[in-house]
Amino acid sequence: MRLIRLVAALACVLLATTGRAEPLAGTELLRGQFVQERHLKAFAKPVISEGRFVLAPGRGLIWIVQSPFPIVTAVTPAGLLQKAGGAEALRLPASRVPGMSRLYQMLDGALSGNMVDVEGAFVVARDGDHLRLVPRQAGTPGAPFESVTIVLGQFVESVTIDKGNGDFDRIRFSDQRPCSEELDPDESALLQSASQ
C-alpha cells in the first residue's frame, strides 16, 4: 500500500520533467515549489501541504513539505527516507521494493528524452496541453491509480492523480527553475542517508 503512494508520487516527478522540450543536462538541478491538495472522502476539506523540491538527475529527489508540518523525503536509486518532525518515519531500501528501481529506470529514461519505458507501463494520450496516462495493467496491485492527468506549460503545471475510490491528489508546481549550481551540503547529506 505504501508502494501505491510512492509510485504515484514518483510518477509525477517523472512527468514533471517530461514536459520540457529539452531534457535536463547532467549537471543541472531543477528546483521549484509545490502545493499538494489531497482530496479524501472522509474529510470536509482537502488536506493541503506546501513546500519545495529539488531534483538532481541521476542522484535523487528531495521533497520538502514546509506547511503545515515539516516532512522531508529523499528518494535515490538505492532507497527512500522520510523524516517527520526531524525523526525518521519511514525507510525503504530499493532492494526490498523492486518497483522503485523500475520507476527509476523510467525516470532516467524520461530525463534523457527516452519515453520507451514510460510508454511500456502507461497508455499515453495527448490532448493539447493535457497529457493523460492510464496504467496498462489496471486493477493489478501494482497499479496505484486509475489515471494521471498532467497539464503542461513550460514545465509541468499540475498533476492530478485519480485513485478511483473518490480520493484524488492534485499537485500544482510553481517557480520551477533549472540551475547549474551544486546541491548544498544538507541536501547531499540527505541523499547520502537515503541511499544507505
Binding site: 500500500m1 505504501r2 501505491i4 503512494r5 510512492l6 508520487a9 499538494q36 489531497r38 479524501l40 472522502k41 472522509a42 474529510f43 488536506v47 501541504s49 521533497w63 513539505v65 503545515p68 508540518f69 516532512i71 523525503t73 528518494v75 527512500l80 522520510q82 517527520a84 518532525g85 525523526a87 518515519a89 519511514l90 525503504l92 475510490n165 473518490g166 480520493d167
Partner: peptide, 19 residues
Amino acid sequence: NRTLSQVFGFVGLADSRLL
C-alpha cells in the same frame, strides 16, 4: 507524527476509509 507524515508526506497511505 507518523500519522501526519502519512497524510501530508510524499509517501503515505492516507486512504480516507482507513482513516
